[in-house]
Write a protein that binds this DNA or RNA. Structure first.
Lengths: 217, 217
DNA sequence: CGACAATTGTCACCCAATGACAGATGACAT
DNA sequence: ATGTCATCTGTCATTGGGTGACAATTGTCG
């Protein structure tokens, strides 16, 4: 049943339309969330704003939450790919640190620092969104920890150290972003400085290299 | 209309009945969750198992989630109170470390290590529960960080260090519990050892004492 | 007992989410 | 261009979580 792969060349009007609808839903959703609050916004309203049936909304997103967390999911992907791009020989802490900071720099500058922080703040002050965001982050942390284990010859299923490394770095990331939401300055330099400092504080105990002995348990 | 405060002496049949219903709901709920899964269990089923109307369920708990997270909330309270009991002069890291480990020891021994881990595992493998659990934990972390700031003369609203300290310790706690869920041994010593080691790894970079200069930002 | 407050059940309702089915629409070969 | 086919979309019905309102019960206390 050879699927629909390899279209003749043009991506097709269909695919473009889908993309437009998808981003229109995100745009409309975030706008409503930011103006009226997450809980006060219904799926019907979002769908209506894009002139689409509510049922269609759920064909694009698994739930209302996904609208608010879509950007965050992209950010996590950026961290992962940036980390994967690092030379395999580089020690994990500096590699992950760079990946995190380059993600912050990138997305905050393309999107605009104020918008970046507005969304961040919406998530932090909305319990259900904060919950979802933390859970997604924990998944990303797992993926990265496993990759670190793979690269440095430790079994992430049996050794805590990769998980600890990733955990403390992300703790720094979260705290840095949270702090930035309360900071008077809203420029990129400040953002990077704050997140960088938080990451450094949190990861100060991570050794440059792990000994050859697994932290057996 | 002076409220219902100060009953004549006996706690009243009413209060006892409420407590019984409350714990019956938790018991029945957890039992169903563990046997059929969280999502597969409906509020109606839990209510029916206790012979109570579904509406009444929501008078005891804000949502289905609260049943699964009720124990976790108690554990967080235990950590907080244990930390508050520590001498105010003690440096924050060892104090928090002791508080965390004593909570783990206490509740796992009164409840039984297997039960303790079963619930832990249910939460970790159920996305919505993991999300809620992480969020609740983040609130607890905030509270403790503020208390640390209060005790050691740093403004937790302006200084990252108390938050970092609490964050890395809780990262260790979470990772230790997660690791324990996968460990073949199910005894208390192993549990304490694992969590203790994870906390130590994660908090290795926290200094014994903070300098007098605030980590100004 | 009698009055009062707290607890409970019933009912009606909103919203998020999902399955089923029919109609619209872009894709592609001829 | 046209008809076929896959995909996308809207409508409808339904389930489950969660809430407000009101009346009926039931513990509490004088």
């Amino acid at each position: 049943m050879a699927a629909m792969s390899a279209p003749t060349g043009h991506d097709g009007l269909r695919a473009r339309k889908k993309q437009r609808t998808r981003s229109a839903l995100v745009e409309a959703g975030l706008d409503l969330f930011l103006r009226h609050g997450y809980d006060a916004t219904t799926v019907d309203e979002i769908a209506a704003a894009v002139e689409v049936s509510p049922r269609t909304f759920f064909r694009y997103f698994a739930g209302k939450e996904d609208i608010a967390l879509a950007k965050g999911a992209e950010l996590d992907e950026q961290i992962v790919t940036a980390f994967l791009d690092a030379p395999t020989g580089e020690p994990p802490l500096p590699a992950l640190r760079r990946a995190v900071l380059s993600m912050v720099r990138d997305s905050a500058s393309t999107e605009g620092v104020p918008n970046f922080l507005r969304l961040q703040h919406l998530i932090n002050r909305t319990p259900s969104l904060l919950a979802g965001s933390l859970r997604r982050s924990s998944e990303t942390q797992h993926r990265i920890a496993e990759e670190i284990g793979r690269r440095h010859g430790v079994d992430a299923a049996r050794d805590l150290r990769p998980h600890v490394l990733v955990g403390v770095v992300f703790t720094g990331l979260h705290l840095g972003l949270e702090a930035m939401c309360a900071d008077p300055r809203r420029d990129l330099d400040r953002l990077v400085e704050l997140v960088g400092r938080a990451v450094d504080l949190a990861s100060a105990g991570v050794p440059d290299r792990w000994g050859d002995e697994p932290d057996s348990w």
